[in-house]
């Protein structure tokens, strides 16, 4: 089994500050982490490798500091790591991002299974996974809750969370799966793991090494453009009162009753 796992480095806190003048993130104050869903994807990949043998590769696109996230993945047990980094990749929307990510797999091999987190906590789109599958012309399934079994290296049995419940599906390989939170808590590397993983090498690809058309990457290659950002206003002049305040309680009850009636209609 060759398993490719894509991860993204995201701001640790999403309670971000915007620069009022430039409409960009105030980057200096931000701490970064690996996107939580990606860690569940990585854990699934590592468990599959332990069960069926093979190799796990972890890949990311981002500024040079994203090696930190890849180092964490290596210490958790991923075999190889790749970083796609080039100023020409910045400002990419999901289309340009997925195109850029697909280009590295076209060079180093698609493998049997591609795992990505369901969505990233910064952009919240959940689009890069399915778009990447399209660029690679392979099947994808979203919202995967667990990977049950690989059959003869040809098919994978998975459970998908849907609006109706959890469905068991059989999918032909190669396939891309987007992983939601699973029951398997991502492992914490030991100090020994961390020290040993320092020997592993992170291969960095820029646009030249990727042999990619840079008119299709970054802001230039993005069909969508952000033209405005703003912080939403959440006004809260809430009525906060102790249980003993019977007047407030009866006002609240009236409101609840209204909602209850509207709900019945």
């Amino acid at each position: 089994m060759l398993i490719n796992i894509f991860i993204k480095q995201v701001p640790e806190s999403i309670d971000i500050e915007m620069d009022a003048k430039t409409h960009t993130l105030c980057r200096e104050s931000i701490a970064y982490q690996t996107n939580p869903f990606d860690l569940f994807a990585l854990e699934e990949g590592l468990l599959l490798k332990e069960k069926y043998g093979g190799k796990t590769r972890v890949l990311s696109m981002g500024p040079p500091q994203a090696v930190k996230a890849l180092e964490e993945s290596l210490s958790m047990g991923a075999d190889d790591a790749y970083l796609l980094s080039d100023p020409l990749f910045s400002g990419a929307d999901t289309y340009a991002t997925s195109y850029t990510l697909s280009s590295v797999l076209k060079l180093i091999g698609i493998g049997d299974l591609i795992l990505v987190g369901k969505q990233a906590t910064d952009g919240d789109t959940g689009q890069v996974g399915p778009e990447l599958a399209e660029h690679l012309k392979i099947t994808h399934v979203t919202n995967v809750r667990s990977i049950k079994e690989i059959i003869n290296g040809k098919k994978v049995i998975i459970s998908k969370m849907t609006e109706k419940g959890t469905a068991l599906l059989e999918v032909e390989l190669p396939a891309l799966l987007t992983i939601t939170k699973t029951d398997k808590e991502p492992r914490t590397p030991t100090l020994r793991d961390i020290v040993q993983s320092k020997r592993k090498f992170i291969d960095i690809f820029d646009s030249k090494r990727l042999k990619i058309d840079t008119m299709k990457t970054g802001l230039k290659g993005s069909p969508t453009k952000v033209i405005k950002t703003f912080k939403p206003e959440y006004t809260s002049e809430g009525r906060i009162f102790p249980m003993s305040d019977s007047i407030s309680l009866s006002i609240l009850l009236k409101e609840l009753q209204k909602k209850q009636e509207n709900n019945v209609e």
Binding site: D93, T94, Y95, S98, D124, T125, G126, Q127, V128, G129, P130, E131, A133, E134, H135, H140, V141, T142, N143, M161, T162, E163, S222, P223, T224
Partner: peptide
């Protein structure tokens, strides 16, 4: 922006080389 929409729409957008704004 349902489970189905969030799965099929990105893929259709990529196939048509167009943009898609989520949610």
């Amino acid at each position: 922006s349902t489970i189905f929409g969030r799965s099929v729409l990105p893929r259709i957008a990529a196939r048509l080389s167009t943009g898609l704004t989520a949610d």
